[in-house]
Every structure is written in structure tokens, then in C-alpha cells.
């Protein structure tokens, strides 16, 4: 196994004591098969125990190790060092307040996710004795892609619109609203529209598409938002031109 010396710059910041964030550089002996997260773990274990960062599964499932790698949002456990030059810069996810070093405050996203009611709101009440909710493969396929979201918030860090307009509900929350809207067992679309069809909802999106490019799970939140724009537009015309029809 070949070893390579990589210069890893990490953004350090403790809001309680530091005036401003600053970059700190570490020289790390990296193995060929390492990912960025391995390099940061090496720093924590062998060079500087004060570096703070989040991680858990190390296999692109938990969504907690998102950070800016050379200026682009990425899961550090999925970013192989062999794909990067000998010097890399690691910063916390853009557009979120820093708690410490690479750890960001996700409260804003969590609050927005909650607002779109990302759970099944049953169409009709069904008791356990009535049996299970059946779903055909086609009905499952309609929304399955959007279930793959791991709430890593890379899409929020990539979205220039979220950076400009912090009230924007944003890509992941929208994609999850879409996921439940498309579910054949769900009847909650009208409730979600109260958030989705507002200016801060789908209409703040200017379809830059960066969210879908950085998504590590190919959820395609940009696609979800455009589909919801079409559906919301149909709703609007129905509501205003055909008030007798229920949307």
C-alpha cells in the first residue's frame, strides 16, 4: 500500500473564544484507500485532539459527516483522497452557523423539515384488523428515489438561493414533502401545500440545480421541486379559474 503526505487545512473556530474562523494546516500520512474522513480522524487521534467534527457510520448512510471539501459540499466518508491533490481544504458546511470547527448548527433545517410534515398522513383511517396497506411496485417506484435522502444537508450548503434567502424551505425538505405527496397511502398533500406552495416554498427555487449535483444519494431534489412547481401551478389555475373544482 502506498502512502502519500497530504496537507490538510481545517477551518478552526470556537465562537466562544475566537474572533474569527481561521485555517489550521496539518501534514497527514495518508493511505491510498483513505477517504477525507480518515485523514481528519488521523489528525484527531495523532496530531491534534481538539479538532471537532461529526461522523458516525463511515459508509454514506448516516449523513452526519458532510463538510466542504475544497469548497464543495461532500460527505467526507465518500470522498476518496486519491481524487484530490496533495493539499486539501476542509471547512464546515456553508450557510449554517458554526458550533465548533467543522460542526454546524442544523436547527434551521430540522425546523423546516418538520414544517413539511415528512410522514404519512393516512388517506383514510384504517385499524390493524383491516389488514395492511397494499402498494404495487409501480406505486412504490413513484416515490422510492426520494426516500433515499439521509438528511446530510449537502444540498443546503450547495444551494445559492438558501444562502441568499435563509427563509427558503430548501431542497431536502422539499424532496421529502414530495416523497410523501407521491405515496399512494398518503392524503396529506393539501396540508403540505400550505408550506410548499408559498414564496418561501418551491417558488424561492430558481432551479440552479446544484442540490442534485452534490446529493450523495441521487435523490434529485431539484427535480422534485420542479415537479411540485408544475403541480402547484395546476392547483393555482384550478383554484382561481375553476373555483368550483376542489384542488
Amino acid at each position: 500500500m502506498s502512502e502519500r503526505q497530504v496537507e490538510v487545512e481545517i477551518l478552526r473556530y470556537d465562537p466562544e473564544t475566537d474572533q474569527a474562523p481561521k485555517l489550521q494546516s496539518y501534514s497527514v500520512p495518508c493511505q491510498e484507500e483513505w477517504v477525507v474522513l480518515d485523514a481528519i480522524t488521523y489528525i484527531k487521534d495523532h496530531i491534534d485532539t481538539t479538532v471537532s467534527f461529526r461522523w458516525s457510520c463511515h459508509m454514506a448512510v448516516c449523513g452526519s459527516c458532510g463538510m466542504m471539501v475544497n469548497g464543495e459540499p461532500a460527505l467526507s466518508c465518500k470522498s476518496f483522497l486519491r481524487d484530490y491533490p496533495d493539499k486539501i481544504r476542509i471547512e464546515p458546511l456553508a450557510h449554517f452557523p458554526i458550533v465548533r470547527d467543522l460542526v454546524v448548527q442544523l436547527d434551521d433545517f430540522m425546523e423546516k423539515l418538520n414544517r413539511v410534515k415528512p410522514y404519512i398522513i393516512p388517506k383514510e383511517k384504517k385499524s390493524v384488523s383491516d389488514g395492511q396497506h397494499k402498494q404495487s411496485p409501480a406505486q412504490l417506484k413513484a416515490f422510492k428515489q426520494y426516500t433515499l435522502c439521509i438528511n446530510c444537508t449537502l444540498c443546503y450548503a450547495a444551494c445559492p438561493q438558501y444562502g441568499l434567502v435563509p427563509d427558503f424551505i430548501g431542497p431536502a425538505a422539499m424532496a421529502l414533502a414530495h416523497r410523501y405527496n407521491l405515496d399512494s397511502r398518503d392524503g396529506g398533500r393539501e396540508q403540505r401545500q400550505e408550506v410548499v406552495a408559498t414564496d418561501e416554498g418551491v417558488w424561492e427555487c430558481s432551479f440552479v440545480g446544484a442540490c442534485s449535483e452534490v446529493c450523495p444519494k441521487q435523490v434529485d431534489p431539484a427535480g422534485a421541486i420542479q415537479q411540485m412547481k408544475i403541480a402547484s401551478t395546476v392547483d393555482w389555475y384550478k383554484e382561481h379559474l375553476m373555483p368550483w373544482s376542489k384542488p
Binding site: 417558488w203 402547484s232 401551478t233 393555482w236 389555475y237
Partner: peptide, 15 residues
């Protein structure tokens, strides 16, 4: 939050 009226211009844009 009120629902947006952007569908007017966006509908024309999409069509």
C-alpha cells in the same frame, strides 16, 4: 404563510 401567486408567470414560463 399565504400561497404564492408566482404560478401566473411560472405557468406561462413553463408552457
Amino acid at each position: 404563510m399565504a400561497k404564492s401567486n408566482k404560478p401566473i408567470v411560472w405557468g406561462l414560463f413553463a408552457a
